[in-house]
Design a binder for these strands. Sequence first.
DNA 1: CGTAACATTGAGGCACTTCAATGCGGGTGG
DNA 2: CCACCCGCATTGAAGTGCCTCAATGTTACG
Lengths: 253, 253
Amino acid sequence: MAQALAYTDKTTGSPAAVAAVPMRRLASRPVRSNGERPVPVDGTAEAALQQIACLQQVARETTLLEDGDAAEHVYKVSRGTLRMVKLLPDGRRCITRFLQPGDHVGLSEGETYPFAIEAVTDATVVRYPRRRFQALLQSDPRLMQAFFSIMGADLSATQERLLLLSRKSATERLASFLLGMADRTESDAAEDNLVELPMSRADVADYLGLTIETVSRLFSKLRAQRVIILRKAQQIVLLRRDLLEEMSEMELA
Amino acid sequence: MAQALAYTDKTTGSPAAVAAVPMRRLASRPVRSNGERPVPVDGTAEAALQQIACLQQVARETTLLEDGDAAEHVYKVSRGTLRMVKLLPDGRRCITRFLQPGDHVGLSEGETYPFAIEAVTDATVVRYPRRRFQALLQSDPRLMQAFFSIMGADLSATQERLLLLSRKSATERLASFLLGMADRTESDAAEDNLVELPMSRADVADYLGLTIETVSRLFSKLRAQRVIILRKAQQIVLLRRDLLEEMSEMELA
DNA sequence: CGTAACATTGAGGCACTTCAATGCGGGTGG
DNA sequence: CCACCCGCATTGAAGTGCCTCAATGTTACG
C-alpha cells in the first residue's frame, strides 16, 4: 500500500534496484546486466517489482530504444524528459508524447515497439524485463488493475491529442501545450507561473504538428500580447493563464 | 478457450444475452433493463461475461452515450459501425475512431466518458455493467490479460493516427484511410477490392481532420487517376492498391 | 416527380509552410 | 577575458495546400 503503489511517485526516493548501466553515447539496447533473481517471497507486489527492476541512465539526445526493436522491457521514467518519436519514410517526424518522471512506456506493445524513445535531457529510467513484469501483473490483480488504469489514462490523453492535431489552430495548440506543461510542472519554486521547457523548438513543433518557424512566431506573438514572458527560449513565464485557457479552446462542451 | 476468448470474434453467433433494448430515436442513456443476476457458477470466464451481458440496439444516427456521461458500462460492438466523437466548444468535431464488430469501448475510462459514441449505421452492442465487468477481470488473470492486450492495440492505433493527423498530407490521409477500411472489410464477396464505406463524407472528413469539400475533391482526384472507382459515393473499388500504398507513405521507416 | 440531404465542383482567401537571412547564447581556444 | 564559432531561435518574404463560400449535381424517399 504505502504511497498508492510506487508507480505514481515522481521521485525515486529509494531505488532498491542496482547495476546502473553506465551512460553511453547513442546507447540503444539495454544490457541485461542483472542475472536471474529468485522470485521474491516477502509478498508485496511493489517489492516484487523492485526485485526485477534495474536503473538505466540515458544521456541527452541518445536513443533508449528504436522503432522496431524487440519489446523486451517495460520502462518507468524516474528523472528527466524523453520523447516518443514516430517517423515517416521521408523523415517527417511526430512526437507522440513526452515522457516525464512517473510515466511508463512499453506496457502495451506487441512483439516490437512501434516508436523510438529518445532522451530530451539526461534521464534515468527504471527498466523491467517485460516477461517478468507481465508475470507479476498476472499474479497480482491489484497490480494489474493499477497498470490497466495507467494505460487507460494514456489512451485518453492520446485521444485528446487527436482533437488537438485534427482541429485546433496553431495558436490553440501552443496554448494547450503551455498549459499542459504548466500542469505537469511541480510547483518547486514559489514562482508558480514559470514553465521550464526541457525541449527545443523543433521538438515542440513535432509535438504540435507545426514547423519550428510557426512555433517561434507564436511564442513571439504571445509575448507581444503580454500573455507570456520569454525569459529565455526555454523559460516561459505565464502572465495570463486565463487568456491561455481562452485561446486553447478548452473543451467546455 | 473455444475461439480465443470471445472478444475477437466479429460475428456474435450465439448472443446468450437477452433483454434487447428497443430502438429509440436519440436514445442516450442505456436503460438498466435487466436486474441483478446471480454470479455464474459454471466457471469459465467467457460464460461469466455472457452472464452479465445485455444486448442493445442503437439506431442509425442516434447516440449510445454522450460526452460526460457516467462511465457505467463497457460495450462491445457486435453489428454495425459507430463513431467516437469529441467536440470543441464551437462545434469543431473530431472522430477519434470508428467502432466496428469486435471493437470495445469503455474499458479505460475514469468516472465519465470523455467522448460521445454515436451509431453510423443501425448497430447492436453488447453491454456489460462496468463494475461487474471489472470484478470479472480481477478474478481472472487470463481475461485481464486479454483486455490488456486489446487496450494496447487501441493505444498503438491511436498513436498511429497522431502521425497521420500531424504530418500526412490530405492525399496521404485518404489513401491511408481507404487501405485501413479495406483491411477491416472481411472478404465477403469475391470482389476483394470493393470497400463499402458506412459513413458520410462529413464523417470521413472529421476522421481525417479535413473538410468535406477536400475529401470529396480527393475522391474525385483518385478516380481521375484511375486509382479507384466511385461506384457510389460510399462504394469504392480499389483498382490500384499499390498506388494507394505509395500515396499513403506507409511507414517503412 | 418534387424535395431534402448529401456530394461534387469551382473560385478565391488565408493560415501555415518554405526558403532565406539575421540574431543570439553558450562553449572553446587563443 | 575576449573573439570566434556553431547550433538554435527569431524574423521576413513569398508560396501553397487546404479551407471557405457558393453554386450545381446526385441520390434517396415520399
